[in-house]
């Protein structure tokens, strides 16, 4: 038996919003520790790694490991039926071929359940080694979303260059070029609004704008985003979801031809 209850369905709605442009289907792996998902987009350029820890749920029970292959389009349709203030419970029997979503309004006057067929997905998993990154940049997630949106008007790629002076995001295209430089926040009063740059080695890497824009669909999950970079390895864009886990996106860089 698997059962996981969240007081706020909005977290699950936002998680889905954050992955559905990249993935059409994905496997949710549930065990004692919580729910994990790892999946690549069709072109194998980006990878989503989601963790929702058991202790972040209002109620969590998982007697046996459960693997649930879900069509994310269908899951999106179902979650649209939940009110933002509804609680949501996901339930599945051991070895079941369906999952049930139960939505309850705050006063319990409305209870709805939606059963969805599961899929047998044979998706490739990648082993991601623990990595010490040369540069990590923390910044307000809304600022990162704004930059990606602004720069993607000019070109298809964004060059991210992190040096001891700060971090620079650049692009160029038919109409011209654009650069945004961010320096570390001088005095940190509010941590959520700070830009914090840690750099051991300077790094410059180039990434496709389109994917960065997909990642920013996670903005509402967290006030801050962290970018981790090292030379010649994928970028990690991490949104920490308060009290429950994180969503990480890995993006392969563009390389010299």
């Amino acid at each position: 038996m698997f059962e996981a209850r969240l007081l706020k369905s909005s977290i699950l709605k936002k998680v889905l919003e954050a992955i559905k442009d990249l993935l059409t289907q994905a496997t949710f792996d549930c065990d004692d520790n919580g729910i994990q998902l790892q999946a690549m987009d069709n072109s194998h350029v980006a990878l989503v790694s989601l963790l929702l820890r058991a202790d972040g749920f209002d109620k969590y029970r998982c007697d046996r490991n459960v693997t649930m292959g879900m069509n994310l389009g269908s899951m999106t349709k179902i979650l649209k039926c939940a009110g933002d203030k509804d609680t949501v419970t996901m339930k599945a029997q051991d070895n079941a071929d369906t999952v049930t979503f139960v939505f309850e309004s705050p006063n319990q006057e409305k209870v709805s359940d939606y059963e969805m067929k599961l899929m047998n997905l044979d998706l490739e998993h990648l082993g991601i080694p623990e990595t010490e990154y040369s540069c990590t940049i923390r910044m307000p997630s809304a600022e990162f979303a704004r930059m990606c949106r602004d720069l993607s008007q000019f070109g298809e790629s964004i060059v991210i260059s992190c040096t001891k002076e700060g971090v620079k995001f650049s692009t160029s295209g038919d109409i011209g070029s654009a650069n945004i430089k961010l320096a570390q926040t001088a005095s940190i009063d509010k941590e959520d609004e700070a830009v914090i740059i840690e750099m051991d080695e300077p790094v410059t890497l180039t990434f496709a704008c389109q994917y960065l824009n997909y990642f920013t669909k996670a903005t509402s999950l967290s006030p801050q985003v962290q970018l981790s970079m090292s030379a010649d390895v994928p970028l990690v864009v991490e949104y920490r979801i308060p009290d429950i886990g994180h969503i990480r996106y890995y993006l392969a860089p563009k390389i010299e031809e």
Partner: peptide, 14 residues
């Protein structure tokens, strides 16, 4: 501009 790499250029399949 560079060529788009894939994740398999960096990570091994499990």
């Amino acid at each position: 501009k560079g060529k788009q790499a894939t994740l398999m250029n960096f990570f091994k399949k499990k």
